[in-house]
Simulated assay, not measured.
Amino acid sequence: MGWSWTYETADGTPTGGRSPEFENRGDAESWVGETFGDLVEEGVDQVRLFDGDTEVYGPMSLHPS
């Protein structure tokens, strides 16, 4: 299993979306840093990072604070 992001609305409701899987955390973090603008346009407000089925951190807002 690899590293991936799940997508949520601002109130924590899952959108059903999930990122591609990545071999390592660094690649997953780079990807979300490069694509967060597209995710926001698609209605994603925050993400959670998973290593396989284990949540590593989140929620992380995609909006400026």
Score class of each variant (00 low, 15 high):
residue 1 M to P: 15
residue 1 M to G: 15
residue 3 W to S: 02
residue 5 W to S: 01
residue 5 W to Y: 12
residue 5 W to M: 06
residue 6 T to Q: 10
residue 6 T to Y: 04
residue 7 Y to S: 07
residue 8 E to W: 04
residue 8 E to P: 01
residue 9 T to W: 13
residue 10 A to R: 12
residue 12 G to S: 11
residue 12 G to D: 09
residue 12 G to Q: 11
residue 12 G to C: 08
residue 13 T to Q: 15
residue 14 P to V: 03
residue 15 T to P: 08
residue 16 G to H: 06
residue 16 G to D: 05
residue 18 R to T: 06
residue 18 R to S: 11
residue 18 R to A: 10
residue 18 R to M: 09
residue 19 S to P: 09
residue 19 S to A: 09
residue 20 P to H: 03
residue 20 P to I: 09
residue 21 E to G: 02
residue 21 E to D: 14
residue 21 E to N: 11
residue 21 E to M: 01
residue 21 E to A: 07
residue 23 E to R: 11
residue 23 E to M: 02
residue 23 E to A: 14
residue 23 E to I: 06
residue 24 N to F: 00
residue 24 N to A: 07
residue 25 R to D: 08
residue 25 R to P: 01
residue 25 R to M: 09
residue 26 G to D: 14
residue 26 G to R: 12
residue 26 G to L: 10
residue 27 D to F: 00
residue 27 D to S: 10
residue 27 D to H: 03
residue 28 A to N: 05
residue 29 E to A: 04
residue 29 E to D: 12
residue 30 S to W: 11
residue 31 W to V: 05
residue 32 V to D: 06
residue 32 V to Q: 10
residue 32 V to S: 06
residue 34 E to R: 10
residue 35 T to L: 00
residue 35 T to S: 03
residue 36 F to R: 09
residue 36 F to G: 00
residue 37 G to R: 14
residue 37 G to F: 05
residue 37 G to S: 14
residue 38 D to S: 12
residue 38 D to E: 15
residue 39 L to E: 12
residue 39 L to F: 02
residue 39 L to Q: 12
residue 39 L to D: 05
residue 40 V to T: 11
residue 41 E to K: 13
residue 44 V to F: 03
residue 44 V to T: 13
residue 44 V to N: 01
residue 45 D to T: 03
residue 45 D to W: 04
residue 46 Q to F: 04
residue 46 Q to N: 02
residue 46 Q to Y: 07
residue 46 Q to K: 10
residue 46 Q to S: 05
residue 47 V to P: 02
residue 48 R to H: 14
residue 48 R to F: 08
residue 49 L to P: 01
residue 49 L to A: 03
residue 49 L to Q: 03
residue 50 F to Q: 02
residue 51 D to C: 09
residue 53 D to K: 11
residue 53 D to A: 14
residue 55 E to Y: 01
residue 55 E to C: 14
residue 56 V to C: 07
residue 57 Y to Q: 11
residue 57 Y to H: 13
residue 58 G to Q: 08
